[in-house]
Computed example of a mutant assay.
Amino acid sequence: MTVVQRPVRAAGCVLWRRAAGEDGLEIALVHRPKYDDWSHPKGKLKRGESALAGAVREVAEETGMSCRPGAPLPTSTYVANGRPKQVRYWAAEAVAGAFTPNNEVDRLEWLTPSAARHRLTQERDRPLVDALLAALHLA
């Protein structure tokens, strides 16, 4: 008998802000020292927490920013630590706050979409940049 594992449920945002320059916006990426990777802010949902509430909470915890969530973006499904994981994403505009390094995230960088695409460690995170641009009608 095969046991089907329920996926780990997580959520996050492609966090952006308006900026001067050719793209008109910047995307926030976080560096997690535990994995030495660059990613969009995301994390596991708490019991009973909605995906959108979890995404907004994770942005606040990892970046120090409050955000205004917008369009849903593609869901990412992959295997992490031998278990299936499903991460729901939203576009979210940063509206206030300031980053303070913590145990989970030691750096935050605001990058142009092109630079963000190149900095992301996981290939699966790169299409989210294009999905954000499409959602904002900038693609």
Rank of each mutant, 00 (worst) to 15 (best):
P7Y: 07
R126A: 00
R57I: 08
S114I: 09
P72L: 14
A115G: 01
L52R: 09
A116E: 12
L120F: 15
Y35F: 12
L73E: 14
L52Q: 08
N81I: 08
R47Y: 14
E62W: 13
V14H: 01
T112W: 13
T2P: 10
E93M: 06
M1R: 10
A51R: 07
V129D: 04
V129Y: 05
D125G: 03
E109Y: 12
E123K: 13
A91E: 00
D36N: 05
V4K: 11
Q86A: 09
K46R: 15
E58C: 03
E123Y: 09
L45A: 01
V95F: 15
P113K: 06
V3T: 06
A134G: 01
T100C: 08
C67S: 07
G12V: 03
A60Y: 15
V95A: 06
Q122F: 15
V129E: 07
A139Q: 10
L73Q: 08
M65G: 01
T100M: 15
L45K: 05
P101L: 09
C13R: 00
G97Q: 07
G70S: 09
G24E: 08
L111A: 06
V129G: 02
L45S: 00
E62T: 01
V79C: 10
V95G: 01
R119E: 01
A71N: 04
R117L: 12
H40F: 15
A51F: 11
R117G: 09
A139W: 15
K42F: 13
R126P: 06
L133D: 02
T2R: 11
G43M: 05
A80M: 13
R57K: 09
V79R: 12
A96R: 15
P113D: 05
V8G: 01
A11Y: 14
L15H: 08
P127H: 12
Q86M: 10
R17M: 05
E49W: 13
H137I: 02
R124M: 11
Q5F: 13
Y89V: 14
V59Q: 13
C13I: 04
G82A: 01
L133H: 07
Q5M: 11
A10G: 03
Q5H: 10
L136N: 14
G48I: 05
E61T: 04
A28P: 04
E104I: 11
R6E: 04
L136V: 02
Y35R: 15
L29T: 02
T100A: 11
A92C: 05
L15Q: 12
S114W: 11
A96D: 15
A53S: 14
E62Y: 07
A96N: 14
E26R: 13
H118Q: 09
Q122I: 05
S114F: 08
R6V: 00
A96T: 13
T2F: 12
G21Q: 06
V14S: 00
V8D: 00
P7V: 00
P113N: 03
L128E: 07
T75I: 12
L136I: 02
D130F: 05
N103M: 08
R124D: 01
K42Y: 13
G54Y: 09
E93W: 08
V14E: 03
E104Y: 11
V14F: 07
P84W: 11
A71E: 14
E49R: 14
K46P: 00
W110C: 06
R6Q: 08
A115I: 15
A139G: 06
M1I: 00
N102Q: 07
A92Y: 09
C67N: 01
G82S: 03
A134M: 13
R107T: 02
K44A: 05
E61Y: 11
V95T: 15
E22C: 05
P127K: 14
L52W: 13
P74F: 03
E109D: 07
